[in-house]
Amino acid sequence: MSTSICCRCNEEIWPRAVCSSGKAYHPHHFTCKDCGLVVDPTLFFAVDDDVVCSECYLDKHAVRCSACRTPILERGVAAAERKWHEKCFRCVSCRKSLVSTSFFEVNGYLFCRSHYRELFSSRCSGCEKPINRQAVVALSTKWHAKCFKCHLCRKRISARVFWIKNGQPICLACQPVDSQPRNLSTP
């Protein structure tokens, strides 16, 4: 039977060795790399192939939740280059869980799809609601296709050419004599 050599003092270990990460220690040399105290061999963490007691691990080495700043000791979520407890990975507006769903990050804050759209999407010049899909761009603003209507007859303007009267869109059927035609664009 071969004898073990303590990695701390380079002396032979007898009668009992404590082993961790391929290294052997005398029981009194099994100490925390941070605080220097003897560590219980059943309650320690290995950090950079060295021994760390549970108190030092929680204080200095444990990954902390981006929301509550407490150590993540069980399952967590890694997203947007940060980590969270599963229970903390939520929309800042409605507190809905974002685990297994799409989310958006703005300035470090997480949002569910509906609150992101509500808060950050372009708004339609006709109905003031968020524009989620393709928009009609006219008169230096955006519109839902169904909301881009003639200011006079309220019919939807679907032609690529329209008229402007007092800064409002007018369809070709209602074309005023004193207005210039404009081209409609869609992004």
Rank of each mutant, 00 (worst) to 15 (best):
T70M: 08
F45G: 11
N183V: 07
A79F: 02
V38W: 07
T42L: 12
R8I: 05
Q134I: 13
A135N: 14
G167V: 03
V52I: 01
R133T: 14
L43E: 15
R64I: 03
T70N: 10
W14E: 15
A80Q: 03
K129M: 03
D49L: 06
K83D: 09
N10Q: 12
T101W: 07
F30P: 01
V92M: 06
R75I: 04
C7R: 02
S97C: 09
S140P: 05
C153Q: 10
K83F: 10
T31S: 05
C124G: 01
Q180F: 12
N166E: 11
H144R: 09
R90L: 03
T42H: 10
W163R: 13
A67E: 02
Y57M: 11
P15T: 06
V92S: 07
I72Y: 05
R154K: 11
I157H: 03
P15R: 04
E105W: 08
A173D: 07
A135P: 14
H29D: 05
P71S: 00
R69H: 12
H85D: 10
C9P: 00
K33Q: 14
V38C: 11
I13Y: 02
N10A: 12
L152W: 13
V39L: 08
F111I: 14
T141F: 15
S102V: 12
C9H: 00
A173E: 08
A79E: 01
F111Q: 11
N10C: 12
A138L: 05
L43D: 15
L37K: 06
H61I: 13
C174H: 00
C91Y: 04
D34K: 08
V137Y: 08
V106A: 05
H29N: 06
R154A: 13
A173I: 04
T3M: 09
G167E: 02
E86H: 04
I5Q: 00
R117W: 15
V47Y: 04
V136L: 07
G108M: 00
H144T: 10
R117T: 15
R8Y: 03
S20R: 12
V99C: 00
I164G: 11
V161Y: 09
D48M: 12
C32W: 00
A135W: 09
H151Q: 13
R160G: 13
L184F: 06
R113Y: 04
R113E: 08
S114V: 11
S20D: 13
G108V: 01
S114A: 13
C56D: 09
P176C: 08
E81N: 08
V99N: 00
P71Q: 01
F30Q: 02
W14V: 15
S121N: 04
S66L: 06
D59Y: 10
W14G: 15
W14K: 14
F111E: 12
Y25P: 06
C174S: 01
S122D: 10
S121D: 02
R69P: 09
E55F: 11
K146M: 09
I170C: 00
S20T: 13
S66R: 03
